[in-house]
Simulated scan of single mutants.
Amino acid sequence: MAKLLYSATASLDGYIAGPDGDMSWLTEHLTGDNPTADRLLPNIGAILAGNRTFGGDDPNRGTDSEGAFGGQYHGPVFVLTHRPPAEPPADVTFVGDLHSAVAQARAAAGEKYVNILGADVAKQCLRAGLLDEILILFAPVLLGDGVPIFDDPGGERVRLVPIPGETEHWYSVVR
């Protein structure tokens, strides 16, 4: 069965987006080789994103690199939302319930990862005991403010264990 992986690129001070969801800071950090990201991409079978992430800022908007993973991802996308668009894109499935969205994404992903995009959906999956792994790629920048990797005031401590042979920022969630 597919594992749920929350992957994100973050600033060194822990933000995945700047104020108001600004992603323009990321553009200069998407160049060059990243062996971990390169290894991950072919192992993603589906994407599960929140509505804010899906409809939000894309640092590559209007270029050949627009879309998930710099435009390199081509596969099933599921968006968790209670407000689907009146005319949804043909290649995107909008789902109003977390457990249904996860089940559909897992079925589509097969034995590959369901890659979660968006801190809020990742938090919901973590709280529901559904999140399996977390991968954070750090960009050499300090944003000072924005959307944190995780924001769960009053949440519980979650133990993570490094995944052997991976980067020091790829962890299994201990349940």
Rank of each mutant, 00 (worst) to 15 (best):
A2K: 09
L5T: 03
L5F: 08
L5K: 05
Y6N: 01
S7W: 02
A8D: 01
A10E: 00
A10R: 00
S11G: 11
D13G: 11
G18K: 03
P19K: 12
P19S: 11
D20I: 11
D20F: 10
S24W: 08
L26A: 05
E28D: 14
T31P: 08
T31D: 13
T36W: 09
T36E: 11
D38W: 09
D38M: 10
G45P: 06
I47K: 05
A49G: 01
G50L: 07
N51F: 14
R52Q: 14
T53I: 02
F54W: 12
G56K: 00
D57Q: 00
P59Q: 01
S65V: 11
S65F: 15
E66V: 06
G67T: 02
F69V: 05
F69Y: 13
G71T: 00
Q72E: 14
Y73L: 03
V77M: 09
F78Q: 04
F78H: 06
T81R: 04
R83V: 13
E87S: 13
P88I: 02
P88C: 06
P88Q: 03
P88M: 13
A90F: 11
D91G: 10
V92S: 10
T93H: 13
V95D: 09
V95S: 02
D97Q: 11
D97C: 12
L98C: 04
H99Y: 10
H99E: 11
A103G: 07
R106G: 07
A107C: 09
A109C: 08
E111Y: 09
K112L: 12
Y113S: 10
L117C: 14
G118D: 04
D120S: 15
D120Q: 15
D120L: 11
V121N: 02
A122R: 02
K123P: 07
L126Y: 07
L131F: 03
L135H: 06
F138H: 09
A139G: 05
L142N: 09
L142Q: 09
L143W: 04
G144R: 08
G146A: 08
G146L: 01
G146C: 00
V147P: 00
V147F: 02
V147L: 08
P148K: 07
I149T: 08
D152V: 10
P153W: 11
P153M: 11
G155V: 12
R157I: 15
R159G: 15
L160V: 08
P162T: 04
P162H: 04
G165D: 13
E166T: 12
E168I: 15
E168M: 15
W170Q: 07
S172T: 15
S172C: 13
V173L: 07
